[in-house]
Design a protein around this nucleic acid. Structure first.
Lengths: 394, 394
DNA sequence: CGATATCCTGCATACGTTTTTCCAATCTGT
DNA sequence: ACAGATTGGAAAAACGTATGCAGGATATCG
């Protein structure tokens, strides 16, 4: 109701001011003369321009532009008047026009391999939330099915004027994409870990997965397991921080490292690895590259009569929402990708000349969440029970 | 090879033509005179404009525009020459400029409550894939935390010139957002089901969940269950197609309907519902509003000594990727949200005046995927076993 | 009180594209 | 061969915003 009334007033105000200065309208709307009924045509979806605001406030539209862009050379009185007019008219700047005129950063495009994998989806959610706070638009482009040779082209396509880039470089495709970004494009990235030796770019963010994997592996070792096996997530440089952390813990404990299986992102990979591992009775503990893998592996273990955690302990990575409802509930390393997304966008903002920033952007810590899938090895208590799984076929 | 040669010729052509006509360049680049070194400044991220293409092809830049927009009044020879120049220079039209000049639809913004819930993530993936095929940009905006009163404002903010809208209206917030979209904005939507009685908008798409829920319920009934209970997903109008289908199957079978629990989207809700249901021995079959709910419910059942499927059968909805790796593997109703996303975008495209379209866009069918969580009730075979779950605490 | 520095504002132009208008060239039919 | 019809291509005006430049107003100082 209130807003309804407000809008009516706006209309009145506007028509009252505009009517007597028909000439002014024509002059103001486009430098050379123009059919004077221009005002009547303004009923499109984005009807109010800075010119309308300027007219309402009684200044030239350039001054309005200065207010919007927080130019220092505007008197407080003018600024307030313009701001009031902006609020009054519910003006929102036209993104396309700003971009065209070389305005400041006002959008991000996220480049990622997937939207449905948990880590990616959560990161996107965090980024979106952050963009909303500062009025940025968020675009999205997938890297799926892009051949390495075509990556340059794919990245180029994602670049728009007045728009930054956030690359989720958790996987080979993402990392390659990151390398393909021209240096002049404002870019931030979520990476697995900074390259060894090099000082990481300030706009690259990551969670310390090395330490987390090491701690998780140590946790299993401390439980009494002889060694720990690993099913990694995909990588392209021969290792991942998760794998490296696992290896480091094993070395530190002076223990012979377990097997490294073939890795992937999905439960299928975990299932395959589980099938292979289940056949080997000496396998009692597995650190999985992510929770999907862990879930698939657990399934394979059960199918082969290996009880969890009695016969084999499993630890996942990420803490997907359903991990705690798995059966048994999955012990895992929680990673707050949403928070990391926020941080990443904050870094991008710091790159831009715009004085914008968002609140609450601290790099999250990984954290071991102990639930039910990890316990002492059977040898530490009694013989393996190898109880068959609770299936209908039992 | 042929095209290779062609390109070389173009290059020669170009340098020969451009060099001697420095003045022409200046004239061409901006109507009033301009510092003639403008060409030197062109080393930004989007360096090549239609003017560059025109110069390379030997035509005016307006002709290039016509070729791009497939205007009929361009000779084949001219078109080919321009197209060659475009390929040569790797020209890509500037989205902002096209939008500003009132060009055709070239972007979509997806409005949805969540990115991480499976159905949403999959739909987004489908939409993204489809947008890529026709060179559209894809934006994304979340509805999370938007109060109903603020919805209009939130939707308005998501509207950009030359950009359509896709609303994922599976939930109350999405449905409200859909209502808030001004009629002049090209919009398509994914909905739960068309409103009863009304002819659905041609740009609204949905999967026949009613039939699927009915079939799933019937499947349980045919297995010998006395009745089926239901844990719904959230809704605002008192029902959902899934719930209605469930009820219809029960009515058709002349069976007293089971309980309708309080619903939500996540496993937590299913867990709570499961806790309540597990206490009632007469509960032998539950249709869940989605797979997360089913997983949470299964967990609650196990914790209370109710074996699945021996004591209670469970059917989920959606077929999330990890459903088949759950333990027992979840019987569920598969829904191809990715395909639905494609279809939705195809509908949006049909709305636009642009003659664009994408391949492979048929509304997907829901499909019951029989796995391990549904079986005949214990009464149909013998007494309930109530075997304790395979936990460490056992 | 006048001069100078400072601050604010308006003017003109640019951004890359679409679109409308218009003219020239080509083709058709007789 | 000529009038008319048709077609191909060019010119110019938008679209909404940003910004360098210059001029005007105001404040400060001598």
């Amino acid at each position: 109701m209130g807003s309804e009334q407000c809008r009516t007033e706006d209309l009145c105000d506007r028509s009252q001011r505009v009517e007597p200065t028909e000439a002014e309208v024509a002059r103001d709307r486009s430098q050379p003369g123009e059919p004077s009924d221009a005002a009547l045509v303004r009923d499109r979806s984005q009807p109010v321009s800075i010119r309308d605001v300027a007219r309402a406030a009684g200044f030239s539209y350039q001054t309005v532009s200065r207010v919007i862009n927080e130019s220092p050379n505007v008197s407080d009185a003018t600024r307030d008047a313009v701001l009031a007019a902006i609020a009054e008219l519910r003006f929102r700047p036209n993104r396309a026009a700003r971009a065209l005129a070389g305005g400041p950063l006002q959008a991000v495009t996220v480049l990622a391999t997937s939207t449905s994998l948990y880590g990616y989806a959560a990161a996107i959610e965090g980024i979106e939330e952050a963009t909303r706070e500062v009025g940025f638009a968020m675009g999205f482009r997938t890297l799926k099915g892009v051949e390495p040779e075509a990556m340059h082209e794919a990245v180029e396509r994602a670049i728009e004027p007045a728009s930054g880039l956030i690359v989720i470089a958790f996987d080979p495709a993402g990392a390659l994409a990151l390398e393909c970004v021209p240096p002049e494009v404002p870019t931030a990235a979520m990476i697995q870990a900074p390259a060894a030796g090099l000082t990481p770019a300030p706009s690259h963010v990551w969670i310390d997965e090395f330490a987390a994997a090491k701690a998780a592996t140590k946790y299993l070792l401390d439980l009494g397991h002889q060694t720990v096996h690993h099913v990694p997530i995909p990588d392209w440089s021969g290792s991942t921080p998760r794998l490296a952390g696992w290896r480091a813990a094993l070395q530190e404990a002076g223990v012979q490292p377990g097997l490294v299986l073939k890795g992937g992102w999905t439960a299928e990979w975990g299932y395959e690895a589980g099938l292979a591992l289940a056949k080997q009775p000496e396998v009692t503990a597995v650190l999985c590259g992510n929770d999907e893998i862990a879930l698939g592996l657990m399934r394979a273990m059960y199918e082969n009569g290996r009880a969890i955690p009695e016969d084999v302990s499993v630890i996942g990575f990420d803490d997907v929402p359903y991990a705690r409802f798995a059966f048994p509930a999955l012990t895992t390393v929680r990673q707050d990708f949403k928070a990391l997304g926020r941080v990443c966008f904050a870094r991008l903002l710091e790159l831009g000349e715009a004085g914008l920033s968002i609140g609450h952007a601290e790099t999250p810590q990984a954290e071991l969440v102990v639930r039910e899938t990890a316990g002492p090895p059977a040898s530490a208590t009694e013989g393996s029970s190898a109880r068959p799984p609770p299936r209908a076929t039992a």
